[in-house]
Design a protein around this nucleic acid. Structure first.
Length: 435
DNA sequence: CGGATTGGCG
């Protein structure tokens, strides 16, 4: 007997028989290059009285979700209610996700008030609790949900990993494998291996067993899987194994090369990283933004100023945009080389707003090379702009610089602000123990 | 003619 195929609109009788003329505006919203552009289209649709269908409102939600603007989402929410699309499962889940990103309290309210929950909504809420740092609530939700799928497990593993509970993340992964009801996919395994990269030698142990799982289940070394493995081994410092996996792969893409390059750069093998980069270009693989981060890191590590300049210029030559990390590497490189004027020039002319990382490397360059004049030039405006409680490192750098320069009064003044705000310098740790 | 929700990013 022939089974009837369930039409995609069968979840709600409301939409099954509605006549839906093709809406090219929806496509435009989907392909909107930026949230700004999407908003522009949205208001144009209002002005020209273009009717909204479920697609246009859905794409609108997705395009604007990265803005994290709860007012905007609330506006779209009321529009959705007005159109009656709140009973549309896809629209409703997208709305929930947008709320999770913008304002988790609203999302929680919406979730609590909506009786129609499904796996996807539960999964979204797990991520929501994870993002707000409430790992216990996330886990409770995971335990309480009536039905799970691979995404639920991934969400839970990611929640543990992102909240520094690496061991719990691994046990969750093991539990998933042991249950034999759910098969980890590339994303799940990627999460597990990503956690390994932050655990040093212990991570390597787990990583190898995850690798074993992949082999046992007959996962071939395709580009994605191979790249994940290269990345894990490289990050753990097992560069030889990273190379072995790399060589075993039949096909490689930019990310494969980038994983190798970043790994070597990160562990101080700058020359190797640079020669991999040349080899990559020789066979015609175009670098991306992350590749350049690795390369510039390699240069900063060895103090290769000339090469650094050359590679930095190559970013735009490759049709890419210099990101804040690239500027950070350059400031670090210039700062370590004592070229503080050049570093300052770069900071003032760069297209993105400098962050504390940038100012931090700049000031430590000043400290190392005793360049107090130029440090003082930026300190004054910097003190007005940054928050003492969030940028403790920069504050103590400023303090150090004043002390080294013999400006005790200024040092005392900055110190008082720090004490008043109860600023403590966060100590570095080789183990992730974020709480 | 045609399009669609979740898990994670460096």
């Amino acid at each position: 007997m022939v089974q009837p195929t369930i039409p995609p609109y069968s979840y709600s009788g409301l939409f099954r028989f509605t006549i839906r003329p093709f809406n090219s505006w929806a496509l435009a919203l989907k392909n909107a290059s930026s949230p700004r552009k999407a908003l522009d289209l949205y208001s144009q649709m209002h002005r020209r009285s273009i009717p909204f269908d479920s697609f246009s409102i859905l794409f609108m939600l997705n395009s604007c979700a990265p803005l994290h603007n709860s007012n905007l989402i609330a506006h779209l929410h009321s529009h959705i209610l007005k159109l009656g699309f709140i009973s549309h499962v896809y629209v409703a889940t997208s709305l929930l996700r947008a709320y999770v990103l913008a304002s988790f309290n609203y999302a929680r309210k919406l979730f609590d008030e909506t009786p129609e929950r499904n796996v996807v909504t539960w999964n979204i809420m797990i991520t929501g609790y994870s993002r707000s740092g409430d790992i216990n609530k996330a886990h409770a939700l995971f335990e309480a949900m009536p039905l799970r799928d691979v995404a639920s497990w991934s969400a839970m593993i990611a929640a543990f990993m992102n909240n520094g509970k690496l061991n719990s993340g691994f046990s969750c992964f093991r539990e998933m494998v042991a249950s034999e009801r759910y098969k980890p996919d590339q994303l799940t395994v990627g999460l597990a291996l990503g956690g390994c990269a932050h655990m040093g030698s212990l991570g390597l142990l787990v990583g190898k067993s995850v690798h074993g799982f992949m082999v046992k289940n007959g996962w071939g070394l395709d580009v994605k899987i191979g790249t994940i493995l290269v990345d894990m081994y490289a990050k753990c410092g097992l560069l030889k194994l990273a190379c072995i996996v790399f060589n075993l792969m039949q096909q490689r893409n930019v990310m494969t090369w980038t994983a190798l390059i970043c790994g070597f750069a990160q562990h101080g093998y700058s020359e190797e990283a640079l020669s991999f980069f040349e080899a990559m270009q020789d066979i015609g693989v175009r670098p991306n933004e992350l590749t350049f981060t690795g390369i510039l890191n390699a240069c900063a590590h060895r103090g290769l100023v000339e090469e650094g300049r050359k590679y930095f210029n190559m970013i735009e030559q490759n049709g890419l945009e210099a990101r804040i990390q690239h500027y950070g590497c350059m400031v670090d490189l210039f700062g370590k080389a004592g070229l503080l004027e050049e570093a300052y020039q770069l900071i003032t002319t760069m297209k993105v707003e400098p962050n504390v990382v940038i100012w931090g490397s700049f000031l430590s360059g000043c400290k190392e090379h005793k360049q107090f004049e130029i440090a003082e030039r930026v300190t004054k405006q910097l003190l007005e702009r940054i928050e003492p409680e969030s940028d403790a490192g920069v504050y103590s750098l400023i303090c150090d610089l004043y002390v080294l320069n013999g400006k005790w009064d200024d040092a005392e003044r900055v110190r008082k602000v720090m004490v008043g705000q109860n600023v403590r310098k966060v100590r570095g740790s080789s183990f992730i123990t974020r709480s």
